[in-house]
Structures are given as structure tokens and as C-alpha cells.
């Protein structure tokens, strides 16, 4: 059996905090700027460490230059024509080789499907620890170690972990959680081109098609997020807004009894005693008073959010978070806030 863990005696050789940045069609993923924000905070609690951002791809110098406006010490851009499109083997090799060469102490990535694909593999190749989907990071003031906190057990347990004896300490962080670094007009920091050693023999994957994804198909009962509309929508056109919110959240559209009976939406969308029972992670009830028949179909949702004009609506008694207000005012603002957090 090959040795998995690399017991290191040279922890002091590892310094600097790295953010593995992410690009999509040349645009910087918001989580990259969020990680820079967090990295700057961490570095304030450590002495003599630098904050570097790494981006990989082909023709990414422009993006590298853009990142110089966020107050990092250095941007390393790893360029190779084999890195033009996502490929687990090439990406893992390019990043692992660079980590082995430069020895960062902390490596942060966004919890995106791409990083969740390569992050664990990089950690395994290096023989170090990775904590995924973190929502909080802090430096232990007693020994300078990174305390990494995440939510598990279906949102019920908050746990913190450390990687005491191996380096780098690797982490993926949920997008939209950390505060973005502020952009300054002036560029600062160094920029460095890194050419990785890659050849076509380094992959076993042959990309035959790359497409941009349109909306996912998800069923109401399987959806992780359900956005439902009720009487408060007042008209069929109100579901356009509900759909828009559901789309932004990658969720499905539900409804209470009134819109179904009024013919505003098809009965397949009904949540409640009559209709579908849903148990999503997040249920957003918009303009739904929360009659007991409706509650029967959604009370087991992990988290419930209610938006309603009437502060006495029963839905506010069973929700986790409520907003008393006009849904036609609240939802567009909510969509905008979510987009700011998640989208390009």
C-alpha cells in the first residue's frame, strides 16, 4: 500500500495564504473575491505571511491583472494550452506541482463543483487534510493554526476541525458566505507567470463536448429549495416573480390552494395536504398565510422563510425567518441580493 499521509517535520517551511481563484469565460467568480476578503482578515492575525491568488487557464493574464485591484501580495497565473478547458487530471497536476514547489501554509478554494472535483484529489496527492464547505475560518491565536468550521448533519451540527500536523491546510468555502474584498482603482502587488509541466500523457480524459447549461430539471419532491406563492400574489402573473426567484436559487415552484383554484398555476405545483408534501432544505412561502392544510405539506422543511404583508399570518409562527412586507417589493430585492452573492 502506498503511504497516504505525509507526516511532515518541516511545518515551518510552509508560509503564505493562497486563494485558488476561479474563472468562467474570463470573468472572476465572486467566491474568489470573497476568499481574498477572508484571506486578508486571516493574514492580519499572522505575522510575516503573504496573500497570493492563483489562477489557472490559458490566456488568463488579463484576469490576473484584474485581481491586482484587491490588495493581494501576488497573483500567480498558471498558463498552458492544455488548461484551456476543465480537466481533472491537468488541473490537479498543475496545482499540486505548484503547491509542492512553493509550499503555502493555507490553500483556500470555493465550494464549487469544479473545486470539489479537484480539491480532494489534490489533498490526497499531497497527503494533507481538506475541510470542505466551510462557513467560518479563523486563526487559533495560541498556535496560529487554522480553525475551519462547517455545518453538517443536515444543518443540525456545527463542527470545527483542524489539520494540526500536515501542510498546507486546505479548505473549500461556501460561495456567498465571506465578505468580498474591496476593489481599489489602483493595482498593487506582483504578478507572475507560471508555466506548468504538462503533456497530453498526463490525462486519461478526452473532452468531446462542452456546453453551457440551461436550467436544470428538478421535481418538486426532490427539490432542495422550493419557492411557493399563495393568495398574496393576487394574479397569475405573480408566478413570474416566484419562478424568477426559484430559478436564481435552482429551486422549484410550489403553490398553496388559492392560486390552484384560481387557475393561476397548474395543480401539479400544489403543496399541502392536497398536493405534494415537500421536505426541502429551504422553503420560501410568499404571500401564503399558512393554513394548517398547507403547513401539513411543508412543515418538515429544514428551514422555512415567510414573506407576507400580514404580520398576524400563521405562517410567521412556523417560520425560521420572516419578512413582513409586500412580496412585490421584497422578492425583487431578494433576487438581487442573491445574485450579488452567487452569480457572475
Amino acid at each position: 500500500m502506498k503511504s497516504v499521509k505525509v507526516n511532515q517535520n518541516n511545518l515551518n517551511d510552509y508560509s503564505d495564504i493562497w486563494v485558488i481563484g476561479e474563472l468562467n469565460d474570463g470573468k472572476i467568480h465572486p467566491v474568489t473575491v470573497e476568499l481574498i476578503g477572508k484571506g486578508k482578515e486571516l493574514i492580519n492575525n499572522l505575522t510575516g505571511k503573504k496573500l497570493n491568488v492563483i489562477i489557472i487557464g490559458y490566456g488568463v493574464q488579463n484576469s490576473a491583472e484584474k485581481l491586482l485591484h484587491y490588495g493581494v501580495d501576488k497573483v500567480l497565473y498558471v498558463e498552458h494550452n492544455l488548461l484551456k478547458s476543465f480537466n481533472t487530471d491537468y488541473y490537479v497536476k498543475a496545482i499540486t506541482d505548484l503547491i509542492e514547489d512553493r509550499k503555502p501554509e493555507i490553500v483556500m478554494m470555493g465550494s464549487t463543483y469544479t473545486m470539489k472535483d479537484i480539491g480532494p484529489r489534490i489533498a490526497a496527492r499531497l497527503g494533507t487534510g481538506l475541510i470542505s464547505d466551510c462557513t467560518e475560518l479563523e486563526i487559533d491565536s495560541s498556535d496560529g493554526k487554522l480553525i475551519q468550521t462547517k455545518v453538517s448533519f443536515g444543518g443540525n451540527l456545527l463542527s470545527s476541525a483542524i489539520c494540526p500536523n500536515n501542510r498546507p491546510q486546505m479548505v473549500t468555502v461556501k460561495p456567498g458566505v465571506m465578505n468580498k474584498a474591496e476593489r481599489s482603482e489602483e493595482a498593487s502587488g506582483k504578478i507572475e507567470l507560471v508555466i506548468p509541466k504538462l503533456s497530453e500523457n498526463d490525462t486519461r480524459l478526452n473532452l468531446i463536448l462542452k456546453e453551457v447549461l440551461e436550467k436544470k430539471q428538478v421535481n418538486l419532491d426532490k427539490a432542495k429549495i422550493v419557492v411557493s406563492g399563495g393568495r398574496g400574489l393576487k394574479e397569475a402573473a405573480g408566478f413570474d416573480l416566484i419562478r424568477e426567484l426559484a430559478e436564481v436559487l435552482n429551486g422549484e415552484v410550489g403553490a398553496s390552494r388559492v392560486p390552484i383554484e384560481a387557475g393561476w398555476i397548474d395543480s401539479s405545483h400544489q403543496v399541502g395536504q392536497t398536493g405534494v408534501t415537500v421536505k426541502p432544505d429551504l422553503y420560501i412561502a410568499c404571500g401564503i398565510s399558512g393554513a394548517i392544510q398547507h403547513q401539513a405539506g411543508m412543515y418538515q422543511s429544514k428551514y422555512i422563510v415567510a414573506i407576507n404583508k400580514d404580520p398576524n399570518a400563521p405562517i410567521f409562527k412556523i417560520c425560521d425567518y420572516g419578512i413582513v412586507g409586500d412580496l412585490y417589493e421584497v422578492i425583487p430585492q431578494l433576487i438581487e441580493s442573491i445574485k450579488e452573492k452567487r452569480m457572475f
Binding site: I323, E336, S337, I338, K341
Partner: peptide, 14 residues
């Protein structure tokens, strides 16, 4: 709406 979005992302929901 902004504070709601913040809460939801802290909870890992969005």
C-alpha cells in the same frame, strides 16, 4: 432582503 440573503448563505442554503 439583504439581511435575509446573508442569513440564508450563512446557513449554507443558497
Amino acid at each position: 432582503a439583504k439581511s435575509l440573503a446573508m442569513k440564508l448563505s450563512e446557513l449554507n442554503l443558497i
